[in-house]
Simulated assay, not measured.
Amino acid sequence: MDKWNVARIGDIAEVKGGKRLPKGTTLEARNNGAPYIRITDWADGAIDAKNMMYVPEAAQPVISRYRIHEDDIFISIVGTIGLTARIGADLDGSFLTENAAKITVTNKIMSSTFLRYALMSSAGQNEIHSLAVGSTQPKLALHRIRDIKVPCPSREVQVAISDVLGALDEKIATNTSISRSADQLAGHLFDQAASSVPTIPMSKVLTPILGGTPARANPNFWNGERLWASAKDITGSPFAVLIDSEEKITTQAIERTKAKPLPAGSVILTARGTVGAVARLAVPSSFNQSCYGFIPNELPPGLLYFSILRAAQRAKSLAHGSVFDTITMRTFDHLLMPDFGEARVSIESQIAPLLDLVTTKVLENASLAAIRDALLPQLMSGKLRVTEAEALIETVL
């Protein structure tokens, strides 16, 4: 095991916070060249522009000093703290939320890419969370970030480690790009087909299934190996593909409670709290009572997913800021979906391969991320040499 030097972030980098938007400012969905990076834009270790919002021109001069640039490190500091990402050229000059900070490396002894991986590691995350204050809404002060200590091997070693881990991240980024294109094309094909057919109330076609929560007082029901999805899992699913859940239940819970799993291909819709989020199951999963589930039968999986997704999107759009805080069984009498009739088979044949590709790439990314996260602490501690890690990842790339 190599013995490495240690560096304090405040000695090798500048740490600055983001800026709250001026009072009365409303972010815009249109791309006007001034992205506003929020914590919700973080996904799988990177900033995802999928739902990016933009600062209107009138507000930009007021917050012009609070930008984040290429090679800076984004770090969340309020609520969900410790999420990190390296800023790429595409987001150079973006504005940064006050709930995050930027770390700009100023000393050549440290690589910004290596520093980001150091903060991602279990040791880095442990230190970040140990420095946070507050339990309900954790906060990480800027001066605390400056006090974080990170390993500082030679630049040669830093670059070598970053290249190894970066190869996995590049593959993840490629898969994400493929998933995005396939998902968008599938949606376009659905919308094109739906535009020429009549609509019908969802309640005439679908049978919503309400989820359930096993009694938490019974230890025999929890910490098992069976998925049990909450609204948080639904909203956090990459490309709306649910492959895992934060909490797990036991087979006994499934057998003795209402928390029955739905098969892969089923669709989950959040009905309370965060309303209208949709995900499709890549694997069987139970879910809680704040969600409805739908099993594909006469309506195949791809059409089922997009029918529910588009209905939820329309409902939220028509609300225009009014109350849309719950979905009940009666709601499905008013949510409309396309009535494809006999055409559903041919339309599904176009959509299904694209959604299958998305699912494949999401599952592959989860595997690649698990390998990266397993290698990360070993490389950062010097317990695993770069050549050993390279040999391992050659088998998966």
Rank of each mutant, 00 (worst) to 15 (best):
F332A: 01
K383N: 15
S367N: 15
T257F: 13
H69T: 02
P353N: 06
R385P: 11
N107Q: 05
A58W: 09
G293I: 03
T257L: 07
K204F: 11
I63N: 08
I39L: 05
A369L: 10
S349H: 06
I128Q: 01
S195V: 08
E342S: 13
L168A: 08
K16E: 12
N297E: 15
E394C: 04
F294M: 00
P56W: 03
K260N: 07
K23S: 06
S317C: 13
Y292K: 08
E225I: 06
S112V: 05
G224T: 08
H129W: 10
I9L: 00
D339F: 13
R330C: 12
T331Y: 05
C291N: 04
A282H: 04
R144K: 15
V345A: 12
Q350E: 10
T106V: 07
G24E: 01
I351M: 00
A123Q: 09
L210K: 09
A282M: 00
R314E: 15
V105K: 00
D183W: 14
L299N: 06
E225F: 10
F239E: 07
I308D: 09
G211R: 03
M52F: 14
A279Q: 06
E342C: 15
D72G: 05
G187A: 02
L185M: 09
T97V: 14
E57R: 08
A34V: 12
I234L: 02
Q313G: 08
L318Y: 14
D339Y: 13
T274N: 12
R216D: 10
M53R: 11
E394R: 11
L206T: 00
S94I: 02
L27G: 06
L165A: 03
L165N: 00
